[in-house]
């Protein structure tokens, strides 16, 4: 069970967080082109190794966190808040 260092709350266990989706698959606006949308939704890099993921600290401060996590070793390489309430670490 991972431990994540939430920028607002400190070291907290994985159970307080919810994995949302891969960062690369986040919609940044509503796109009209179907082919482009389906690319974004279904074609994923799915790396073996460092992987950029969107998590939410759902049982804590509910902030959105971009976590760069190694999918093999589970090491947390980087963790940064995103969204309008993000403060520069």
């Amino acid at each position: 069970m991972h431990q994540f260092n939430c920028p607002f709350c400190g070291q907290r266990p994985e159970t307080e967080f919810t994995y949302i989706r891969a960062m690369e698959s986040i919609p940044r606006d509503i796109v009209a082109d179907a082919a482009q949308e389906l690319e974004r939704i279904y074609y994923r890099t799915n790396s073996r190794g460092p992987s950029s993921e969107l998590w939410q600290h759902s049982s804590g401060c509910r902030s959105w966190l971009a976590i760069n996590r190694d999918t093999v070793t589970h090491a947390v390489l980087e963790i940064a808040p995103i969204g309008p309430h993000a403060i520069a670490p």
Partner: peptide
């Protein structure tokens, strides 16, 4: 709720 917050914070900030 998560979807609404996601849309507000990440998709349409």
């Amino acid at each position: 709720l998560r979807h609404l917050e996601f849309c507000r914070d990440v998709v349409f900030p």
